[in-house]
Amino acid sequence: MNKEVLIRLEKLNQLRLTDEQEAATLAFFDEREAEMTALDAIDTTDVVRMVHVMPLENVLREDVASQPFTREALQAGAPAAEDGYWQVPRTVD
């Protein structure tokens, strides 16, 4: 981890850190990296990754449509809306 990578990460995550925050974050990354020895110590060669702690499967719903909310309600808290649309600055392709 270095400042260059950190700046790329900030961009990717739509955040901007101050110099002081960047320094603190770099130190944070170093600290986490040091902890990884505890993970490295565990042999996981033949271990299957565990995404879900409960072994459920096929949690599915029937294909039935419904519309319990109005557009007005959904846009009541919108920072900017126009004519039933959410509004943002012009995007470019």
Binding site: M1, V5, L6, L9, E10, L12, N13, Q14, L15, R16, L17, Q21, A24, T25, F28, F29, R32
Partner: peptide
């Protein structure tokens, strides 16, 4: 940047990485 606190920002960047 304006609405998130410092700890959250660092956590986001760490998670992203």
């Amino acid at each position: 940047t304006e609405a998130f606190g410092e700890v959250l920002k660092t956590a986001i960047l760490y998670g992203s990485e």
